[in-house]
Design a protein around this nucleic acid. Sequence first.
DNA 1: AAGTGGTCTAGACCACGGC
DNA 2: CCGTGGTCTAGACCACTTC
Lengths: 240, 240
Amino acid sequence: MRRTRRNATPAYQRIQQAILRQIESGQLKPGDAVHSERELARIHGVSLMTARHGLSVLEREGVVVRRRGSGTFVGLPKIHFNKLASFTEEMAARGLQVTSKVLSFDVVATEQEAVARLALASDTRVIKFERLRFGGNEPFALETCFLCADDFAGLTREALERGSLFSILKYDYGIDLSYSDEEIDATSPSLSTARSLKLTAGVPALRIRQVIYSTKSRPVMYVLGLYRSDRYRLMVRRYR
Amino acid sequence: MRRTRRNATPAYQRIQQAILRQIESGQLKPGDAVHSERELARIHGVSLMTARHGLSVLEREGVVVRRRGSGTFVGLPKIHFNKLASFTEEMAARGLQVTSKVLSFDVVATEQEAVARLALASDTRVIKFERLRFGGNEPFALETCFLCADDFAGLTREALERGSLFSILKYDYGIDLSYSDEEIDATSPSLSTARSLKLTAGVPALRIRQVIYSTKSRPVMYVLGLYRSDRYRLMVRRYR
DNA sequence: AAGTGGTCTAGACCACGGC
DNA sequence: CCGTGGTCTAGACCACTTC
């Protein structure tokens, strides 16, 4: 059987990408049937289990719907459930330009909650910074970010203002992110927060507390986000 | 090789249940190593792929954490991410008694948004009812529920007051639910809603709009929920 | 070096849906 | 009936972590 070279993209991911390309190019529209598992296996020269593995991830993201006895079909457009994306990526998906303003940047030693969520010793110093996030010149969210100060010693305010945090982690620190655990509720923003977000008083905000983990299952950062509820909503899929 | 009888619980689910039992019984604590994939395969007399399949679902729910080269470990206790549970089940997990009060129950023909979300023809009549949900005598949420009136003709207010909606669907209509797609934001509840939830004016609520699908991928019900943010928060895991 | 999880094969049978 | 997705086998090699 054909062998793949080491360290290449796994076959099941190549199959996913092939399907995503077909959807993005308009070749497949919502409701259309995707190639069957057996066809995908034959087309890509892989076994049935491998083709199935590729589809299963796309299904959990809502990209495709599988119906036993019937087939696999393209899901509703532009909805990706339970997908951890950077703010930059989310806005790009909506065709909006992102800008960010770093409101503060400090190293602090008294952030008990953040330190606990990052599973660090209680006296650990953390980098703390606040960013106001704009999509197409409109404020969307105020994010407060915490990272272990020792692990990310070289991280500066200037770097943050230049590029996206996700890429800094990847290219400067070799850290790939894999998932985030999030706690979501609603809150009345403080006066200063409301002013930053240009919210009229009394309008609620969506509060998302997320702990983001690396591919090695280590907590990397804790983010407290306050989102304008009229501009941003969370899409989630839950399973029985 | 040993054959399983038809229509039995799949092997990968039996493996999941075995692990969940070990955790619930206290035999395994957070951080403890679960049996390795090869051990599980041997213990349950299945192949490696089957044991892996079982673990992968538990991993996506946050029950276990897998670390390549190292092992599989029990995750943090009592947190099940992205799990579609009935209100009754969620409260039971917290040890709270559930009561519900049906505030209204009608068949209506003018609910455009609900009809659209259920993918029904625009003139379809739907059952619409509101329930106030209590956990341990405290109001948690106000839910407005919509179902196709033709498909659930026998559904009455009395049945709702007796038992949980999920079990009515299962035992009276033979419908098993499989997942829900949800849209989450924050809102200021109306005066009457605030009164029902015993909220002081101006306190925000978490708004969850969910479309719940059957195992046959058909939308079954649309639920608009307003949750007291101080008593309820949503736990979600998102993937890169 | 030994053990772990991650990818993959080349088949098999079952359950279900639509024609 | 045939094609679909769902479950499953009995192996293989790779990449990684721990010792």
